[in-house]
Amino acid sequence: MLNSLARASVSRVTDPVGRAALRVGLNPDLVTVLGTVGVVVGALALLAPGYLFAGTMVVTAFVLFDLVDGAMARARGYGTDFGVVLDASCDRIADGALFGALAFYAFTSGQRVLGIAALICLVTGQVISYVKARADSVGLKIGGALAERAERNVLGLVGAGLAGLGVPYALDVCLWALAAAGLATVVQRLMQVKGAWDARIAADPASDPARTAVPPPVRPDSAGRRRRSDLRRSAR
């Protein structure tokens, strides 16, 4: 949702930054790795021990690296398959570090219910991305969803930052809202995949494996063979 609304506006800011980064000799893959390392270190060193506002500032700064590497690839005029896989893998690591750190903070500070919300956010975020990746791998194209990575990062970091400033229940509200949105998005993604599959079958019925599958030969079980053998003997 945020991705589709903000992509054009964000590109106007990040594209000049991407061109400048290329001029100083950086490449998109290096920026991807540096951003991920920064997120992981900031989450584990600051968010997990409870330095929520400072951790939010550091993690947010490195999360923005994910915008710069894409701008660099556009400025360069091409991306690579390795870069796509690296970027997706680093995104999962960064997301795991963020919500894992928030879960650790919640559990170690005695907020077990909040820790459960953080774990739900962590798991649903990974599943949402996995369903999209698996659908793409089998040629089923699906569109946007309710809670994609931008929404997850914004809600998680806004909640942590406000909690670090002393706003009561800010992190609770944001994480539980995100947990509910994440669960809804998992269902939404699976429904999108089912819709894409149904559309493929409707367009090309011959591609349905249920119509072209050859059933295995029927083999009588041993009990059936014994019964027929007994019947033959009794007939004699």
Rank of each mutant, 00 (worst) to 15 (best):
S137D: 11
A145F: 00
V193C: 10
S129V: 01
D221R: 13
R226G: 06
R233T: 13
S109Q: 14
V31R: 09
A181Y: 02
G164Y: 15
D91P: 09
V68W: 09
V131T: 12
L5Q: 04
L52C: 06
D198N: 10
G159F: 14
N3M: 05
L67Y: 01
T32V: 06
M1Q: 05
P209T: 01
V84Y: 06
V10G: 04
D208M: 02
P16C: 02
G182K: 09
G77W: 00
L46P: 10
R76V: 00
A75I: 03
T80K: 01
L231Q: 11
T185A: 00
R112S: 01
L171C: 11
P217M: 12
A94K: 12
V84N: 07
L119V: 13
I93W: 15
I201Q: 03
R226C: 08
S109A: 07
I128E: 02
S222L: 14
P16K: 01
L178W: 08
R232V: 15
A196C: 00
L122R: 05
G83M: 02
L30I: 13
L52H: 02
D95T: 05
R228G: 06
A170M: 14
D221I: 15
G164W: 07
L86K: 15
G70M: 12
A184I: 09
A20Y: 04
A43H: 05
A21I: 03
R76H: 06
V113T: 01
A106M: 10
R232H: 13
G18F: 06
A88E: 01
V173M: 08
D230E: 04
S9D: 14
A199E: 13
V158M: 02
L157F: 02
D230K: 12
S129R: 12
N3V: 08
L52Q: 07
L157K: 10
V59G: 02
T14H: 02
S4G: 10
G42A: 11
L67P: 00
L34N: 12
A181F: 04
P28M: 15
R228E: 12
V123K: 04
L2C: 07
R19M: 03
T80Q: 10
G139F: 08
I142S: 09
A106E: 08
P28T: 08
A103N: 07
D221F: 03
V39H: 10
M1A: 04
G110W: 13
T212N: 11
D81I: 09
I128S: 08
S234V: 00
Y130I: 01
G38M: 04
G83Q: 14
A196K: 08
I128H: 11
T32L: 14
